[in-house]
Structure formats: C-alpha cells, structure tokens
C-alpha cells in the first residue's frame, strides 16, 4: 500500500473511532479531551518533530484560541464555528508577535515560550481588562453551549491536524523542515529560506492550538483564565508526543492513546497511586525508550508513518 494511502487510512480510522466511541461509551467529554490532546500533540509534533523547537509555553496559543473564540461570540456575536476560526486567527496573530522567539534555541527557547504564555495569561486575567476579557471573572458561553456540535467540530479540527502532519511527512516542505532541524547552516547553504520555513511551522502549530482552544472553550463553555492557560496542558501534550515519537504521524497518536488511556484508567480506578504510577512510567520510558514508542517499531525495520 502506498504510504499516502496508509496515512489516509490512519486518518480515517482515528476519526471514525472518535465518532463511534461516544456511541459505545457515553462519557463524550472523555473522547473530546482525547481529541484535544491528539491535536495538541500533533501541533507540538509539527514544531518539535520537524523543526526541533520544544514549546513549553504551547498552552499560550491554546488559551488565546479559547479567548479569541469566546470574545468573537460575546463581542462580535459570531456563530460558534466562525468564532472558532477567529480563535485560530488570534493564535496566529500571537504567533506572529512571538515569532522573534525563534531566534533562540534549545532550553532558551523553551523557557522563553513558557514565559510568553504566562505573560499572555496575566494580560488576559488582568482586572484592568475586565471590560474586554472579563479579567479574572472568566467566561460564560452558556448561550452557545452545544456539546454535540462542538464535538463534531473537534473531529474536523483533528482531521485537519492529522492531514497537515501527513502532508509534512510526505512533502518537500516537511523534508526541508527536517533538514533545518538537523543542520540549519547546511540547509541555508542549500538555498532553504530557514527563517521563513521556521516561522511557517511555528504559525501552523499556533493555528492548530488556537483552533483546538476555540473548540475547547465552546465545549466547556464556562471557564476561568487559569483553566485554559494551565501549564499542565503543555506538559501533557509534550509528554504524549515524546512518548509516542516525534516527526511521525503515528507517534503522537500512539503516545496520546496509550498515556491518556492510562491517565484515565489509573486516575479513575487507582487515584491514590496515580502520580506514583504515572511518574514512574514516564521515568522508565525516558530512560529506556528515549526515541519514543515508535522507535521500537523502527528498530525492527518497520517504517512508521
């Protein structure tokens, strides 16, 4: 089977499962949350897996998308779906503002992105902006609350995200990004516009987080700034991505499915041991599978999508 068809099959299977599973198990938000992390992990994957930038402050785009969507509904009276797109646009605008961070690299970039996300959080939660963002009082979208519709839109956003990663896996642009990740000087000497390609990947990643944040806001409808700028969202998305394996389509899917599954299994059945078990598992995986779960398949000569 050609790789493009294999990738398309993965995409269809994942989306079909996301549509079918709530019919089998009524906790729809569980699967919504799963899709949120599937999409965010792919967003992290686009940035880290293809360019080598680890965005610890990725939640800044997510929160911006949530607020962009909410303000589009509350202030511009847009219907929810266009408002979700507005959330994505808001995150892209933030990405443009923060694009100079790409001048940094490694731990410096990670820390700077973290600080930037916190700065955005404090601006949004600032009491002086209560008239605009409702400051610390949070958002209520009770008027447009529709969990079923927002669930379906989330399936769409996840589909777009998976398709974007599949494109990068298959396209010249994806190879260019990986070349930049491995050796930016050589890539530049080969005629690659390093800055432009990095910024495009950064904005694509921001767009994904913004759209996901917008749909998340629609789904939960009542939230505080702390909920959508929660740093654990970034950390979980990064851990899931690293666990599955970066630079692939299936790695993050595998990471989210296994770790998010375990998160819920342990969290629901053995909450008292949750942090011990989960922490130990992650330490073991980092020690023995630094390349992620996908590296197990690669070691056996299997070409992971």
């Amino acid at each position: 089977m050609p790789r493009v068809w294999s990738g398309a099959a993965v995409l269809v299977v994942v989306l079909a499962l996301c549509l079918v599973l709530p019919q089998l198990y009524a906790n729809q938000f569980l699967f919504f949350d799963l899709m949120v992390y599937l999409a965010l992990a792919q967003g992290v994957n686009i940035l880290y897996g293809f360019t080598g930038y680890l965005p610890f402050g990725y939640v800044g785009f997510f929160g911006t998308g949530a607020y962009g969507m909410s303000l589009a509904v509350l202030k511009l009276h847009l219907p929810p779906v266009p408002a979700v797109l507005a959330g994505g646009v808001a995150a892209v605008v933030l990405g443009l503002v923060l694009a100079p961070l790409l001048r940094l690299s490694g731990a410096y970039f990670a820390i700077a992105s973290l600080a930037a996300s916190q700065a955005v959080y404090y601006v949004v939660a600032n009491p002086s902006l209560t008239g605009v963002t409702r400051g610390p009082y949070g958002i209520s979208l009770a008027r447009v609350y529709h969990p079923s519709q927002s669930y379906l839109v989330m399936v769409g956003v996840l589909g777009l995200t998976l398709a974007a990663v599949l494109y990068l896996r298959r396209s010249r642009r994806g190879m260019v990004l990986q070349a930049i990740r491995d050796d930016p000087q050589s890539a530049a000497m080969a005629g690659v516009n390093v800055v432009r390609e990095r910024v495009l990947a950064w904005l694509a990643s921001a767009l994904i987080a913004g759209l996901v944040g917008g749909v998340f806001a629609w789904q939960i409808s009542v939230f505080y700034p702390a909920t959508v700028f929660d740093l654990s969202t970034s950390i979980m998305a990064i851990v899931f991505t690293l666990f599955g394996g970066t630079g692939t389509l299936l790695g993050p899917v595998l990471g989210v499915t296994v770790l998010f599954g375990l998160y819920n299994v342990i969290g629901v059945s053995e909450p008292q041991y949750f942090q011990l078990i989960y922490g130990a598992l992650i330490v073991l995986l980092v020690l023995f599978l630094p390349g992620g779960a996908a590296s197990l398949l690669k070691r056996r000569g299997i070409d992971v999508l």
């Binding site: 099959a9 993965v10 599973l21 198990y25 899917v253 595998l254 998010f260 299994v265 629901v268």
Partner: peptide, 19 residues
C-alpha cells in the same frame, strides 16, 4: 501500519475499559 493501528485501538480499548 497494522501494528501501529492495532496498538492505537488497544489503547482506546483500555481507555474505555478502564473507566
């Protein structure tokens, strides 16, 4: 592809079963 898809299905199964 089949192995990876199978693992994903198993994970989702665990997700459902564990709740």
């Amino acid at each position: 592809w089949r192995m990876a898809a199978g693992a994903a299905l198993l994970g989702m199964g665990a997700l459902v079963a564990g709740c």
